[in-house]
Design a protein around this nucleic acid. Structure first.
Lengths: 247, 247
DNA sequence: CGCCCCATTGAGACGGCTCAACTTGCGTGG
DNA sequence: CCACGCAAGTTGAGCCGTCTCAATGGGGCG
């Protein structure tokens, strides 16, 4: 059994989460129609470690692949480093989202993973997940689906980088975050960005200056309100239009 | 059993390929260490249809997801169409490469798929593949790996689009194709591009004019030789340098 | 032959980058 | 408590790479 603490009730604050069964993120990282007995079997292989501090790495590119991780609280970014030291952020991960799939192929992780703030994760050892997937078809399907979703969202990101101007890219990111917050029953219109302007620029293929100017312009046009990392979306429809507009 | 023709020997021309067992692409789309009996079981669920003509769609975004496909001969592109009609090519697929994974999540294909030239594919019905994967752990692992590889190569593509200038993007594509040709024991330095300048530009987030100018410049610098779609790489190392250089 | 599509090349426009100055918030230490 | 340094963000001015628009060349096919 996993290394859980005695008290199971601090769930909503995210530090200790004894079981998938009563986790309010279950609808995101597990199949909806999963049998309760099967959830228990999955729960038994999941390990829950100490929190990761802001800036601390969960693992690095090249490390031996052992597990995939579901974010339980906080937020996390993944990034590549090219031969020449060029860094590219490949994704931001919020609670309920699963990362690490890029390590399966070569048996080494492909990305570096670092916490954007104090975060906790559920570690799912992959060989045990594979074994369990052979016994629970619904689970096999689920992980195929999660990976498929990654591929789809990467494709969307290719389109964003390839075809949209600065405004469109920023709008796309804001709407993506908004959507992911609202999936967790949080406000889709008011949020605190977990990442810096630098991270946003790196992710979107823009400089921090351009990101900053774009925020300012969107604010001037009353589409959003910006106060540092606090963002309020004032005009969701308009933001959507901006996002669906080529460069 | 699948709809194979009588004659099994036209293999190298790609039209009829009766069995995975004697397919020279097996090393690419199937696990290397797969038992011959298991290969036969997989072979039994694979369907091989008539060739797809250049410009013909294999399926379209939104179609019901039924199968993944391995390219047997020819070449194929996948592309998205945004709400506003913006098209983004998300990948080129050469013989031995597998596509369609983006449809698993929603049970509808996410991409449009069209042949760049007369091509043949092996259709692998997904529900039967899932069943077989439950019985053959090596196969389950293999498809996790294939999807993982997709995710990794998408990440590389994000870096390319986000951080490289026109030269770097074109160089990256050429080296990717070169690498994939050489995996099939074809020359890594001489190739015929299966796609138009338009396709290249769309894929790389550039206009056809910029692609054309970039080819011309690389030719003037003796890095490559260009004759329409015929490309010769004269200086592999230099191309590699160009590819690893930010904008 | 002539049409059409694809590719190439040139000239000018523009969006985002570079460089630089300045502001703000926060932690540290005198 | 304020002075200070530092990191993050904002804003401005000028530059550069890629896009846009346009003209021309070349190959395949009816």
């Amino acid at each position: 059994m996993s290394n859980v603490a005695v008290n199971n009730d601090t769930c909503s604050h995210g530090f200790i989460q004894a079981s998938c069964t009563n986790c309010n993120l279950r609808g995101l990282c597990l199949p909806l129609a999963m049998d309760i007995r099967d959830i228990d079997r999955l729960n038994d292989i999941i390990q829950r470690g100490r929190p990761i501090q802001s800036g601390e790495h969960l693992y690095r590119a090249g490390d031996k692949f052992t597990s995939v991780y579901a974010v339980r609280s906080g937020s996390i970014k993944t990034y590549l480093i090219d031969n020449d030291g060029i860094e590219q952020i490949t994704g931001f991960y919020l609670p309920g989202e699963v990362l690490g799939f890029d390590g399966i192929d070569t048996d080494n992780y492909g990305c570096n993973v670092v916490a954007l703030e104090t975060s906790t994760v559920c570690e799912i050892p992959f060989t045990r997940l594979e074994e369990l997937s052979l016994q629970i078809p619904r689970l096999q399907r689920h992980f195929f689906q999660l990976m498929s979703r990654h591929i789809q969202s990467n494709h969307q990101m290719l389109l964003t980088l390839s075809k949209k101007n600065a405004e469109g890219r920023v709008a796309t990111l804001l709407l993506s975050l908004s959507h992911r917050y609202s999936r967790r029953k949080l406000s889709p219109n008011a949020m605190r960005l977990p990442m810096s302007r630098m991270d946003i620029g790196n992710f979107l293929g823009l400089t921090i200056e351009t990101v900053s100017r774009t925020f300012s312009r969107l604010q001037k046009e009353d589409v959003i309100s910006v106060d540092g990392r606090e963002i309020v979306i004032n005009n969701h429809d308009r933001l959507n239009e901006i996002c669906h507009k080529a460069r």
